[in-house]
Structure formats: C-alpha cells, structure tokens
Design a protein around this nucleic acid. Sequence first.
DNA 1: AGGTTGGTACTTGTCAGACAAGAAAAGGAG
DNA 2: CTCCTTTTCTTGTCTGACAAGTACCAACCT
Lengths: 227, 227
Amino acid sequence: MKKEKVAHRIAAEILEQIVEGDVKPGQKLPTEKKLCEKYGVSRASIREALSELKAQGAVTSKQGGGTYVEQAFHGEFFQQVMVDESNLASFRYLFEMRKILEPEAAMLAAERRTKKELDAMLSALELMKGVDDAESHKGRDADFAFHLAVMKATHNPVMIQTFANLDTIYKKALALSFEEKQEIIRNKQIIYKEHENIFEAIQAGEAELARLQCLIHLRNVEKKLTP
Amino acid sequence: MKKEKVAHRIAAEILEQIVEGDVKPGQKLPTEKKLCEKYGVSRASIREALSELKAQGAVTSKQGGGTYVEQAFHGEFFQQVMVDESNLASFRYLFEMRKILEPEAAMLAAERRTKKELDAMLSALELMKGVDDAESHKGRDADFAFHLAVMKATHNPVMIQTFANLDTIYKKALALSFEEKQEIIRNKQIIYKEHENIFEAIQAGEAELARLQCLIHLRNVEKKLTP
DNA sequence: AGGTTGGTACTTGTCAGACAAGAAAAGGAG
DNA sequence: CTCCTTTTCTTGTCTGACAAGTACCAACCT
C-alpha cells in the first residue's frame, strides 16, 4: 500500500545498525561517499536519510569532520516504542502512563486554571457534544483538545510537551486498531459526562476531586479500548 | 561562535511561520521551487530544511502532491519549551514533572524488577561512588543511569521513552546553569545515600517505601538546584 | 448532462557532477 | 620532538536533469 521512500528505508537501516551496536555512541559513521556505494544510491538520498537521523538526535555532523553517533543517544527507547506500537499492549503502557500523569495534572489545573483555559475546555466540550457518528476522528480531536486544555492549565511547558508526545504515540496505536469507532461512539453520553465532571471540578478549584474524576475517566476509557 | 547552517536557519523560519499561524494545519506549503526563490537558496537546502521539519512531525510531503502542515501539529509546545529552556524556571517545571512520574515508576519498579535491572542499578551506584570531583559529568551520567534503570524496571516503554525525553531537556537546562558542580559534589554523600535507599526498597519489593524514598530524593535534589 | 478516460502541466523524489568551507592527516622546518 | 604549512578528505551548498506520482482539465462515451 504505502511505498516507502528510499531515504526513509536507509535511515531505518542505519538506525538499526546503531541500535544493534554495530556503531557505538561517539563513533564515526562511514562517509557519505562510502554509504552511497554501500547502499547503491545517490548522495542526495544518503543526506536525506542522515538529516532524518540528525533531527531524531541520533547523529550529528561536523562539516569536514564526519558524522558521529550522538553520545547520549539511547536508541533502545525508539526501538521499543516502535516495536510495541503495532501491538495492542501499547494501549496498556500508554494508559499506565496517562493514569499517572493526568490526574496529577488535573489537580494542578484546578489550582492554576485561568479563564482562558476554562474557555478552551468548554469549547472542546461543545465540539464533543455536536459530533456525529460519521466523523469519528472529530470526536477524537475534541477529546484531545479537552485533555490538552487541562494540561495547559498547569502552565507547565514540560508537562504540556510530554502530553503532546503521548498523543503522537496514541494516534499511531489507534491507527493500527480499527475497532475504535463503534466503541467510542456507543458510549458517547458516558464519556461526555465524565469530561463534564472533570471540568466542573477544575472550574470549582477542587483539586482532589478533579484528580479523582480524571482517574475514573481514564480507567473507563482504558477498559473500553482494551477488552 | 556556532555558525548556523543555511538549511537549519530556513527550517526555523518556516517553522516560525507555521507556529505564527501564517500557514495553518492542513494547508499546503509553497512548492519547493517557490521556496527556493523566496529564500534565495538552492533546492537541496530547501529539501534539507523540509526533511528536518518532516522528522519533527511538522509537515508531510506527498510525491507529486505537495507539502502540507500536519493536522495535529501543535507547534506551541516546541516553542514554549525552547523559550523556557534558557530560564532557570525550567528546573521547577522539570522537577514538578519528575516528582509526579518517578515515584510512581519506583513503585512499579519495586513490583516488577528483575535481576537484570537490579544489576544495572548496582553498577550505577558503583559508578557514583567512584566518581572524583574533577569530572562532574560522570557523576551526572551515573545519576542518569540509575534513574534510567529504575524506569526500565517498570518494563513500560512509553514511560522509558518519556524519561529519556525529560533527560534531554534536563541536560539542555543544565548546560545553561553552571553552578551545578560545587552543589552536587559537596553533597555527594547524601545523594548517594538517597539512591541507595531507593535501591534497597526496590530490591526488597516494598513499593510504597520506594515511592516515598524516590519522592524525598527528588525534593532534595530540587532544593539544591533551585535555591 | 453526467461520469469516465486520457493527456498535460506541475510537484516531489532521486540522480549526477561540481565547487566552497571546514577539519583531519601528512609532511617539512626549526 | 614540536610547531606550522600543505595536502587530502568530508560535509555543506549549488546547478541541472530525469523519474515517479499527483492534480486539473478537456474531450469522449453512454
């Protein structure tokens, strides 16, 4: 179906060699010229592949000096998450993390929220209410927008960024399990009510209640996604 | 000091336009040809810049179709964390996150650890003991290795990856505040003892104790880093 | 008219060769 | 042996070209 581009394929192969330990952190990669010969492609493709790895933080290049594997690159992580992405177990991992992070975030949000974030939560709720079955991705977007608004209310950029990263993983996992639509739509009313509960607790500034409502919500969603 | 490469500069400029809202999610970017004229560089540089954005998840390209801003790209996050990196407030944000994540991880680690991870923790402790004042970065590496081993003991790749991301932010923040050495080295004994406490709780399988020891440790480290 | 089919222009992906800028290795002078 | 110069190598950028895939429109058939 999807034809993978040459550059991407080569990037994956080089990354695998790094993860595998063929080229260890701090060591120098072969020159671009040699990589061209090795993979039988042009230098443009090699450079495209390398720039992908550079953006990932796996390698760095010094003009005239060569390309080196980053010292503090822990390739295992990428590998692990990549591998388990195709597995439904990734939902369990993901929600274990969310159940740790988000209830605490809801607590902080209840203490620090401003009108701006409350408005964002409200408009996300509106979106959620008006979603029709045909477009399930809109429901997911609204869901994300709500949880993002909660996270933003903590005013902690590190937590916000982390949540964004989790969403990326979430989407990849969702893309590989297609039965989401029915499940989520069927329980639209319940899910909506749970979000409303979280919102009201945050609006009222009741930190502990917000934490609990968020935890309950995540438990229910997890139960629906992992039978 | 550091001469920034053309491709990187252009990638930053395009990213700023996206964050600024000039090009909204789902919309099409100008063609590579037009970008060449706009920035006065060759297509190779433009493609290098775009491939950086692609790797970041900001845009996607379809051969023959054009380059589009990713629907679910929330550029604000990158922006926020980047900006606050240079501020010492980022330590507070970072430790707020760590205090949420790691004690829970220590708890899970106490329940799930295997001999492999316990060994990793032990060798990290050994490293920590043998570190001499001259090389403070080795002390930091040992510290990271220990906390990483704890995180790995949860056997949750999502949490491991998240922790790795946090470490990246941590290192960037450290690089901008130079007074770490004296502080950390002076309290070497105390820090070491705290790590040992965490290790013993995890080894004994006492989850709640592990959680507490980890929380205490993080509070102390934070106190030292943010006066 | 409406839908299908085909062609044409456009856009991204890849290739090839060249020069510039910087770094590492080799060689020579003291 | 040390220091400096020169040479060679490597990455960064430029130019031009073709291949592969897409979008758009017009002509065609039913």
